[in-house]
Amino acid sequence: MGNWTAAELAEIDAVSEIQVAGSRRDGSLRSFRIIWHVAVDGALYARSVNGPDAAWYVGVRRQMSGAITWNGEQRAVDYVDDPTHDDAVDEAFRRKYGNGSPTQSLNRQPARGTTLRIDPK
């Protein structure tokens, strides 16, 4: 597992959306999809608002690697199932995006069961 620098994590957390893509077996990337994300305890987290059947989530889970983009930057990443900070991730989503229906959806099942930590390679 790599670690984001404090500057990288602050820059990524400052944008409202990132794009994620999973890797194919041959190493090429699937299509990028826009998602919401949060920083918690020095790590980057994301969930699938549409649960485990969302196309981007299914694609990411196949190899558990891929890339993210933000502010014109692209970084190779690993995706890791990590429910250990779920309560803090819930709060971070509320703090960052408010408590509207998209956030409420992210903070309950089935979306809550899709928590991924996104680690840089």
Rank of each mutant, 00 (worst) to 15 (best):
V60Y: 02
L116A: 06
L116N: 04
F93Y: 14
V15R: 08
M64E: 10
S28R: 12
P102N: 10
G113M: 04
G27P: 01
N50E: 11
G59R: 15
W70G: 02
D13W: 07
A14L: 05
G27S: 05
V15T: 13
A6M: 11
G72F: 12
I35V: 14
D41G: 15
Y97K: 06
A7K: 14
A39S: 12
A55I: 06
D82P: 06
M64V: 07
D90M: 05
P110Q: 03
L29F: 05
Q109P: 10
R108D: 15
N99T: 15
G22T: 03
P120C: 13
F32C: 02
V49I: 14
G59F: 01
S65M: 09
W56G: 06
P52W: 13
M1H: 08
I18A: 03
T103R: 08
A111V: 07
P120I: 11
S31Q: 09
D26Y: 14
W56N: 03
N107E: 08
I118S: 09
Q19F: 14
T5K: 06
A55N: 08
G2W: 00
V38D: 00
R62H: 08
P120Y: 03
E8M: 03
H85C: 08
Q63T: 15
Y79C: 12
F93E: 02
R30G: 05
S31A: 13
S48I: 11
D26K: 10
W36T: 11
R30A: 06
G72R: 04
W56P: 12
Y45F: 10
G98N: 03
V80K: 10
E8S: 10
K96S: 01
W56M: 03
T103A: 09
D86E: 13
